[in-house]
């Protein structure tokens, strides 16, 4: 005896959730990549304004592109786990190994989730550095004042 029907049903439902999240991860990763490219274009203008805002722009661009890579890799791990769980059968002799492989992919997803949390803290720290008195050009030129 290997898997009971309720365990297989739970794994199949997890499979659907992983697919939904993987699609969102790919779209989000694509948006991060586009945003990173746009930031890279704007970095030269930021350097022209001041060196510190240029450095902040460079760091933000690198982190945005890194985020894109990590988010897309997370989606790949979810798709891989889904591919392992897809069509799982309780009578399959290798079902335990397949579930173990899927769980390993999900674990890697959460390892990258921790990496993302660290990157978000770094982004916040860069924002903090960028908030210094020399970072936003002459007084009165706060970015959000235009709103």
């Amino acid at each position: 005896m290997r898997f009971k029907e309720e365990e297989l049903a739970a794994l199949r439902r997890l499979d659907q959730g992983a697919l939904f999240l993987a699609i969102v991860q790919f779209v989000g990763g694509g948006i991060f990549a586009v945003a990173g490219c746009l930031m890279a274009i704007g970095t030269s203008a930021a350097f022209a304004a001041s060196v510190s805002s240029g450095v902040v722009g460079c760091l933000t661009t690198v982190l945005a592109l890194a985020m894109a890579a990590v988010v897309i890799t997370q989606g790949i791990f979810l798709i891989r786990s889904r591919g392992t769980l897809n069509g799982i059968d309780g009578a399959d002799p290798g079902s335990l190994e397949r579930v173990a492989a899927a769980i390993e992919s999900i674990r890697r997803y959460f390892v990258l989730e921790v990496v993302i949390a660290v990157v978000m803290v770094l982004l916040a720290a860069i924002g903090l550095v960028g908030a210094g008195p020399q970072s936003f050009g002459p007084p009165g030129s706060l970015p959000i004042r235009g709103l």
Binding site: A45, V56, S141
Partner: peptide, 11 residues
């Protein structure tokens, strides 16, 4: 402002 200088003045 958004396209020309995203890290500087957006005014």
């Amino acid at each position: 402002a958004l396209v020309a200088n995203p890290f500087g003045s957006m005014r």
